[in-house]
Nucleic acid binder design. Sequence first.
DNA 1: CTTCGTGCAAACATTTTGCACAAAA
DNA 2: TTTTGTGCAAAATGTTTGCACGAAG
Lengths: 147, 147
Amino acid sequence: MYHGGMGRKPKIAGALRELMVARGHHAWTLEELRQALAVRGLQANFSSVFRATAKLETDGVVRRVELDDGRTHVEMRDEHHDHLRCRICGEVTPVPCGSLSAALAGLESTTGFLITDHRLVLSGTCPSCQERAALPAKPASPAAVPS
Amino acid sequence: MYHGGMGRKPKIAGALRELMVARGHHAWTLEELRQALAVRGLQANFSSVFRATAKLETDGVVRRVELDDGRTHVEMRDEHHDHLRCRICGEVTPVPCGSLSAALAGLESTTGFLITDHRLVLSGTCPSCQERAALPAKPASPAAVPS
DNA sequence: CTTCGTGCAAACATTTTGCACAAAA
DNA sequence: TTTTGTGCAAAATGTTTGCACGAAG
């Protein structure tokens, strides 16, 4: 016995757009999107999130990007940018790729390739995690410093 | 009834190294490696290729890179470089990333990130595929020119 | 003996699709 | 009615691990 359409709270795709334009987070995995919807009171199935984002992609609203954690991420499709990902906290920050353009133009002429797209994933440590790493593990227990 | 060790033709890892240093191909998927071994007469199991490459990675001989086709690729670990991938024929060409270094240094100071690694995947059309696309589908049927 | 590399199968993680069905048009 | 969006289950895809076992030391 199926109960698919259920109450069918109107729309997942719409809620996803609201979520993603609200920012605070930049590149979402499908599971992150599903959980964020749940927090907002919309219990959606993973498949539905998958299909809703697929539709948003078709409509040109979002773009799918592969960062380096094996899962696909979805982001709003504003102007092109690259990605800075902190290896410690995992947060993804967009960065403009202006300084790259010149380098790409040079590559086109030296390689003969027609470059139609690029994706630059930068890995490193974000400022907050650098601070955290610089501090003793806890001021309260200075003897607990690991190395 | 298992017959695991079989004849155990000496070594997969060694054969993989030979394959990969021989070049002609740059970034290999595990399946590509397995097939290439088969052509050379070494029937290896996918898992064995997986583990052999894992070992090579641990030994610092190869590196794993995620290009944009969903599968993991393996490449020899010489100096760092970026990747040009043709969207038509799929061939991957390494390119030096010298011109990028300056841009990265600039990003470090403007973002506060400590950038420890990067991966640039360029997509486009390689020279051969550009030629192929520019030609009429076949010289024998000039009326078949698409646009 | 122990260690290592291997084949095979199964587990695992993630993405995608098939099907039924409710709501909307 | 048809179309669309949905839940659920299962398939598809790619990666990883468990286990037996032969070869090497």
